[in-house]
Design a binder for these strands. Structure first.
Length: 455
RNA sequence: GCGUCGGUGGUAGAGCGGUCAAAUACUAGGGACUGUAAAUCCCUCGCCUUCGGGCUACGUAGGUUCGAAUCCUACCCGGCGCA
């Protein structure tokens, strides 16, 4: 993996660049589609590609449980397995330490509305035997499978081994995403743990690469003698080579400035015999107000020449914030989850498509949207005189009808629109960095998007 | 015509003397969702309300009872059986 910065945003940390992987380039800043279980929910890879998404991010924990990383490896890696030819990434399972741990069954998530963490500290105490599916142990995390209740102990080494089997282009160190509700003392402990795990992740990654390199040499000998192993093809060798991935370290530290900066410093300096992380993830569960400062503190310290991924974010306003503060990659479940649940993005804010007022609204979700759902990607249609026509696309009334009827196509059409909306918002922002009008665009977009007026 | 079973909120369907404005599901209305325990979850769903409560309701009309969706009578409507 390589990363090249093309242009920097003046008076800020922002930049536009290109990440080159063995499966293609990612022009950054970029929004990566989330495909937890090796599928972007309700979309096939072609539909994902048509939204403009350049990469897909799967999940270690989910794919380890089902179908198992051995199967994915046998299939030729997550990309081949899911029939996605572009760049792929996998998350380490670190988020599940949080979502299946302290956050399990609670009203806390990636973004919390609680601004003052001290408000919730008392709750922590009568909370210790609350049911949870993830428990942090001495040198890893024990997970109780949400599928069948079986217990799995995931260590940093295990996470990296699984991720090597999954074979994504970019993989992440195993970390602990902490709850914003935890106090400073806990955040410190957790951060030290994440840092120890980071080093172990990196070490395992390097060891596995070394093993691969030696088995790769081993593979060469029968080829050199012209004796192809039965069942193998000439493609085998390059595909083995393709399995080498880049490892990103993850910064944590909650909302505390010192911890965030310390984490950025330690993770960026972590190395095994002079081998460092290839890029960085910025993790954590935030109160929304804390996010921009946390990102800025971190990115001021991280080396400029390596990509930074703001994990699990975000909403349009978060994307502007992140990009301005030096983030290169984002991923977020919102476009697809909101889509499946009947909420769609528009430049004037989100709308709930099932609302009564859309039942007889025969216009597309956004008339000038270029996504398939809104009709924009239908320019291949020809009129009587051979003129190119713009399809009317699907109307709000129709999409609403599909939701009311619980038709599968509902989630698909809404997800296509949402993913297109977010992916292309980031693309537009990238272009404004290159064209030197980022701040104007940001002001104009957010003025419309955050204002309450209707579509 | 006789007998019999039944008629409950937008729908289906519990309730079978007080704790019933009536379980539950669906529909409907509104909302939430940020490295996916998620095609999920939450709230509302007779009318009025100063949110304490008030009023009208379980086919219709009477009656029994301190009290009836629940018991009795008549009538209306529907299913089934017999003529």
């Amino acid at each position: 993996m390589e990363f090249k910065i093309e242009k920097k945003l003046k008076k800020s940390l922002g930049r536009a660049g290109v990440i080159t992987t063995l499966h293609g380039e990612i022009e950054t800043p970029a929004f990566v589609a989330v495909g937890t279980k090796a599928t972007v929910k309700s979309l096939n890879p072609e539909q994902v590609k048509d939204t403009g998404a350049q990469a897909v991010l799967g999940n270690t924990y989910h794919l380890y449980l089902q179908p198992g990383d051995a199967i994915v490896r046998e299939a030729g890696g997550i990309g081949k397995f899911m029939n996605w030819s572009g760049p792929t990434m996998t998350d380490s399972g670190g988020f599940q330490v949080f979502s299946l741990g302290v956050a399990y069954g609670k009203d806390i998530s990636k973004i919390t509305k609680i601004t003052d963490p001290s408000l919730l500290i008392p709750e922590r105490f009568d909370d210790n035997d609350a049911p949870r599916l993830a428990k942090i142990g001495a040198d890893g995390v024990s997970f109780k499978s949400h599928l069948d209740g079986s217990i799995h102990y995931i260590t940093p080494e295990k996470s990296i081994q699984i991720q090597h089997n999954l074979g994504a282009d970019i993989i992440f160190a195993f970390d602990e995403c902490t709850s914003p509700v935890e106090d400073l003392k806990y955040q410190e402990e957790a951060l030290e743990r994440t840092h120890r795990w980071a080093e172990r992740s990196l070490r395992e990654h390097i060891n596995l690469n070394a093993d691969k390199a030696s088995s790769f040499i081993g593979l060469l000998s029968p080829l050199a003698s012209g004796a192809l192993p039965l069942g193998s093809s000439a493609c085998e060798t390059p595909s083995k080579r393709e399995s080498s991935s880049a490892l990103f370290g993850i910064i944590q530290g909650g909302r505390d400035e010192n911890l965030r900066k310390k984490s950025a410093k330690i993770i960026s300096e972590t190395n095994i015999d002079g081998k460092y992380f290839d890029g960085f993830g910025i993790g954590g569960s935030f109160a929304k107000e804390d996010m921009s400062s946390a990102v800025r503190w971190v990115n001021e310290i991280l080396p400029e020449n390596k990509p930074r991924h703001l994990l699990g974010i975000g909403e349009p306003e978060d994307l502007f914030m992140g990009i301005e503060n030096g983030v290169d990659l984002f991923d977020c479940v919102l476009p697809t989850r909101l889509g499946r649940n009947g909420t769609v993005y528009t430049k004037f804010g989100k709308i709930i498509i099932t609302n009564t007022k859309f039942r007889n609204d025969f216009l597309p979700i956004e008339e000038d949207c270029e996504c398939y759902t809104c009709g924009g990607k239908r320019s291949d249609l020809k009129g009587a005189q051979g003129l190119t026509l713009r399809s009317q696309g699907y109307s709000k009334a129709y999409v609403a009808h599909l939701f009311h009827g619980k038709e599968m196509l509902a989630g698909t059409l809404a997800s296509i629109h949402n993913l297109y909306f977010i992916v292309n918002l980031v693309k537009k922002i990238r272009q404004t960095i290159i064209d030197n009008n980022f701040f104007e665009f940001k002001k104009e977009f957010l003025k419309n998007y955050l204002s309450p007026h209707q579509v």
